[in-house]
């Protein structure tokens, strides 16, 4: 029973555009043939085995995870206090400061990458790994500020006053009231930031050095020289990892549970 044919059609189209490439990717990854073709020629796991055997993928995955973890932690460490100040403090020119935190989204990543490359790697001789972490932190900061800010904006600003009135000092108020209230926001910001970092190409492309490369960059390199389904297999593994992270967090913290509903 379709009551709105046009709306249904558009919805179906949207799903097709979103999920179609994923379906194709899945097919290609499990192919038994040796080219990137769809539909797959038979089923096998040989390309997954090949991917796990390819040393550059394994070592760059290590780099990617380290960079994603460190830059997520750093972006939150900088972003959470900034958000608190923006939302609860009295900051002159609040709107301007808030918009400044969005600039890394607006500035093309290649520009940011080039600037960091020149200033940090060439100018200050900082290692590729450290520069990657710094670059990704800059990239993730807007997400941290926005997502944590949104959760804080939804909570009652009187909560802190209630705690203070009941005799809790500023520190106790922060750790027992403000921080727990922000927890769902911090967790979703962390997931979003981690996945964003893990998938980033443009910034990483300019900040990788000899022997230090992230997985997406390494995948790009691979595609440029070879034309086999190994890359599809790696993509499926990345996809599976991302979905797993999202599902596990949802189960562990279940945002609804945090609010006690």
């Amino acid at each position: 029973m379709i009551r709105r044919p046009l709306l249904s059609l558009l919805t179906a189209l949207a799903f097709l555009i979103m999920l179609g490439p994923v379906v194709i990717l899945l097919g290609v990854a499990f192919t038994a043939g040796s080219t990137l073709t769809f539909p797959p020629e038979g089923l096998s796991l040989r390309w997954f085995a090949a991917a796990l055997d390819y040393q550059p993928f394994i070592s760059s995955l290590g780099t990617s995870l380290v960079v994603a973890a460190l830059s997520t932690v750093l972006a939150l460490a900088l972003g959470v206090p900034a958000t608190l100040a923006l939302q609860r403090g009295l900051i002159p020119g609040r709107g301007v400061v808030e918009n400044l935190f969005a600039t890394p989204i607006i500035v093309p990543e290649l520009v940011l990458g080039l600037a960091l490359f020149q200033q940090l790697m060439v100018g200050l001789q900082i290692t590729a790994l450290a520069t990657l972490v710094i670059g990704h932190t800059v990239l993730l900061l807007p997400y941290a500020v926005r997502v944590v800010g949104a959760s804080l904006a939804l909570s009652d600003p009187r909560l802190e006053e209630a705690a203070r009135g009941l005799g809790a000092g500023p520190l106790r108020t922060f750790f027992q009231v403000t921080l727990p209230v922000m927890r769902p926001g911090i967790i979703s910001a962390a997931i979003l930031a981690f996945i964003t970092s893990l998938n980033n190409v443009p910034l990483s492309l300019l900040l990788t050095g000899p022997g230090v490369s992230t997985l997406p960059v390494e995948m790009l390199n691979y595609v440029q020289s070879s034309y086999d389904p190994v890359v599809a297999a790696v993509s499926v593994l990345l996809l599976a990892a991302s979905v797993a992270v999202a599902l596990v967090t949802e189960r562990l913290v279940g945002f609804n549970k945090v609010f006690g509903r």
Binding site: E161, G165, L166, V181, F259, G260
Partner: peptide, 27 residues
């Protein structure tokens, strides 16, 4: 405020959403 020994009730209730009722009262 924390040194004034006041008990304040807000229009928005301002209960701590992550604590049980008894923990709210015991805060």
């Amino acid at each position: 405020p924390e040194k004034r020994n006041i008990g304040m009730v807000f229009q928005s209730y301002a209960l701590f959403p992550h604590m049980t009722i008894i923990d709210n009262v015991a805060f």
